[in-house]
């Protein structure tokens, strides 16, 4: 069989890089989108493991050849998990937004406190 299509490989690469880029943003909404994209990337790379991915699994095509069903099963499970967690993440992001009217990740309070320890004590 042919190797996985070039387009699939490029898609996975774009999804990973875009996902990590979004993950590093300050807005929680973008972080959630980043996680979503990364989830898709991981699922698609699961599908990339099979060379005959264009064929149907289990039942086979006209020639009786079939693709490996295991990556499909694993991707399905992973999709279920990502689905559940994403809804939870959305609810959380919403909660954060509800409390603060913005969804930016704030500076860590404790970090700020420790940074203050290193500054000369003229303000206190």
């Amino acid at each position: 069989m042919s190797t996985p299509s070039f387009i699939l490989v490029v898609t996975v690469a774009v999804l990973y890089s875009g996902g990590f880029y979004l993950l590093l943003q300050r807005s929680l909404m973008r972080v959630v989108f980043g996680i979503l994209m990364l989830g898709h990337a991981a699922n698609m790379s699961l599908l990339l493991t099979d060379e005959a991915i264009t064929l149907p699994p289990l039942l086979g095509g006209a020639s009786g050849e079939m693709s490996d069903p295991l990556p499909h099963a694993m991707a399905l499970t992973a999709i279920v998990i990502t689905f559940g967690v994403t809804t939870f993440l959305l609810a959380l992001a919403y909660r954060v937004w509800l409390g603060d009217e913005n969804d930016e990740v704030p500076d860590d309070v404790e970090d700020r406190r420790i940074r203050r320890l290193t500054e000369p004590e003229d303000s206190s």
Partner: peptide, 21 residues
């Protein structure tokens, strides 16, 4: 929880990638 969830999820996705590899 937001921090915790996002970090854990990131590692889960890397885990999945590792499994794929």
């Amino acid at each position: 929880s937001m921090i915790y969830t996002v970090v854990s999820l990131t590692s889960s996705i890397l885990f999945l990638t590792g499994i794929a590899l």
